[in-house]
Structure formats: C-alpha cells, structure tokens
Amino acid sequence: MVETVVVAKVTVDVQAVKMDADTSEPILKGVPLKVSDFDKNAMEEALRTKAKLGGKVRVVTAGPPEARDKLRELIAMGAEEAYLVTDARFSELDYAAVGKLLAAAIRKLGKIDLVLAGEASIDQYSGQMGPRLAGALGVPSVSYVRKLTPDKEGLVAEREMGDLVEEYRLPYPALVTLTKEINEPRLPNMMQIIGASKKPITEWRADTLGVAPAELEPAVRLAGLRGIVMKRRNVLFADEPPEAARKLVEALRGEGVLGGGQK
C-alpha cells in the first residue's frame, strides 16, 4: 500500500490571457481557470501507483474558493479524497505562505508515502513548489522525473539533466515532480464526471491547519505585471503557393537575409 497525495494547482488558463490595448497589462479578470497541465500527469501517475500497489490517492489544492470546481476534474480522474486549502486573501499569498499551508495540509493527512507534483505550473513556470515542500517536510525528492517505478519500500526515478540520464532510488516518504513526457493523463468518462460532482471536497483554512496569520505574511510581493506586446509587420501572402512563395522570397531578399553562408 502506497499512500499518495498529489499537490495540484488551479491557475488561470494562460492561453486565454489577453492584453489591455491601452495599458498593455494582461487582463486576468474573467480568464477561465484550469488545472495546471502537468498536475494531471501527476494524478495519472498516482492512479497507476495505486493500481500497482494499492493505497489511497488524495489531492490537495491551495487556491481561491473558485478553484473548487476545477478540483472535480481530478476527482473524476480517480482521486478518492480532495482537499481545498483556501484563504480569503489567497491572491496575496506567495510561495512561502502557500508552501506552509500545503506542508501543514500534507502533515494533517497522516501517513503519506509519496507526494507527487508537476514539474512546473503553467502560470508561474517556476518548479519551485515541489522542492520547497520537500525541504519544508524534510523528505528526499527528485525533480523533472520522466519515468517512475514505485514499489512497496520506495521508488526508482529517472530524469534527464543536460546530457545525462540519471536514475535514483528513494525510500518513502518522498516527493517527486513529474514532466509531461511521463504519461498521457486519462480522460474521465461521463459517469465519472457526474460521480465527481457529488463527491465532497474538504475545505481547510489556515486556522484549521494551525498556521498562524503572521506566518502567511508574504515574503514576496507582486509589484507589477507588464504584458509583453508583439509588434511585427504582419505582411501576409494568401496567393496560390507558387505566387506566395515568389513574394516571400522576394521580401526576404529585400531584407538582405538570403545572403547565404551567414551561419
């Protein structure tokens, strides 16, 4: 039996973010939320571990109250218990604060063998939370794992680092962060989706977790967000291929970039 918890983040769908034409700031209001991509790979890996070795699969999200609905997608995949750690001022919390909440939540779950996280979240693309939690919980960890082989006592994890492929053995309890290549997350069927809508989601707050408000004072504060605006010429050729190709090559020659040998 391997008791597994997946830490999954609910974020804005970065693909849907638009820029304000006047301020060139990204508009985050009204952008749909989604489960961060790689966290579904983490859930898939947790479910495969359970199929092989038994044990329960839990999922924990720290997020705003609206994250609750998205958590159901992971229940539909197969999570047996779901926990939402939330706070009225969630958007002000930084990694240090969220890390404290998540570590406290994982401790509160009791005996956990394996914590799975994504390599990085889609909005921050940071890869910070996994190893941060491992440090806070005092458990060994490996990041960027692309192949995981768990057994009763521990796991073997393979990852690519630069020009090397590394293989590690870790005893439980351990934390592993996973890359997208590791698996193809399953798509829940209609029954599972309907079933998930009825499952309870436990809500925890800082006080239920014994985290004092002072510990949530952010160490890092967002001072500004500047959208990156693309300014390009956008000259499009929609002619038949021979004509379009001729125009393009002419345009490139005009730019002086067909000199050759400039490698």
Binding site: V12, V17, P26, A219, L222, A223, G224, R226, G227
Partner: peptide, 15 residues
C-alpha cells in the same frame, strides 16, 4: 517571465 510568457512580473522582497 510569467503567464506562460505573456507577461513580465516585478516582484518585491518584503522580507
């Protein structure tokens, strides 16, 4: 760089 590459965030160390 944040939001998948959409934006640059400026972050201040409060502590």
């Amino acid at each position: 760089l944040v939001l998948g590459g959409n934006a640059m965030s400026s972050e201040q160390m409060a502590k």
